[in-house]
Design a protein around this nucleic acid. Sequence first.
DNA 1: ATGCATGAGGT
DNA 2: CCTCATGCATA
Length: 360
Amino acid sequence: MTLPTASEKSRIPEASCTSSNEQINPFYSPFFSNLTSQQQQQLFLTQLLLSGATCPPLNPLTNALQFLLHNSALFLQQQQQQQTNFPPCPIPPFIDYNNKSKESISSINLKHKNDLNTSVPLDCSLSDTNEKSTIDDDDNSPTIATTLATLPSNNSEETTTVDGINLEEIKKFAKAFKLRRLALGLTQTQVGQALSVTRGPAYSQSAICRFEKLDITPKSASKIKPVLEKWMREAELKYGDRLKNGPTNLQDLVSDLNTKKRKRRTSFTPQALEKLNDAFELNTHPSGTDMSTIAQELNYDREVIRVWFCNKRQALKNSAKKSKSNQINDDNESTSSSLMDDKLSDTTNYAKLQHDEILS
DNA sequence: ATGCATGAGGT
DNA sequence: CCTCATGCATA
């Protein structure tokens, strides 16, 4: 049999975060010339974001026009990169904003009075089950509704909960968050950049992407959730009055440039991947000597091979968790989780391997 | 969106 | 050396 691969995962087409090709303000070119294209892009996006260029026009009509002109290209570009079965531009930003329940907006304001200047609470205890997410999705989206409807009543006690984490809650928020983000015309990258500039923990585009598609463990999801919630809250307000947004602190970003270089990402040949996958099916925890052998055979660094196995295990584990949480209702044990139970959760085996390693 | 890399915390 | 959470880089 074969293990689940990336290509086999179901994928929901959604907004890509491909960079825009907009021109860089000449004013900043001295800075940009020393940066990589990626860094340039990120810097630029930060500038764009902080300057308020992407703010939805909650204020004057002129702002609305400016906003449209400035961002329509970007927004359209994003939409056009959608896969075929994704409806184009589902939510016009303005209309959506006004249509969003007054309840959500008012609750945002109420909440804001209380924690305007507090730091992000990092507790994962999810006490917000009662306090509800401020950006609650008022729609009864078929997917969620269906999911909820199909949940068995006999298991309702723990169906939506894994390790004390309410999966439904997170799922719901992830969906709402994505909708809001798209409605604001923001990419995952932009949100990530915005987070990195504001106080509190930041998350990258990757993290946001994984959160939105729930390609993360419940634990991390519950950690990221409050951060995104808070950002969303403040974003709504900030867009309301963006005057207070001053110039960016370029220094912070530039100073990061002196950090050491990251190893170039290894690209395995299909043949190598085939062999690696074969080896993985036989043994998810090859011994040190095993990995050395594999590394020699395939002519890759031993360390690279080791990391590959680590990542492979992690991927398998996460996908198993996901499928578990997605099919709580049907009581059949999935093949993937049984594989995981057999090979990954066998700590005895792992300990034994380590022991053998020491002896040899 | 996803694959490989990194680093923290554990054994 | 491992797992786990994350991020950079890239397909």
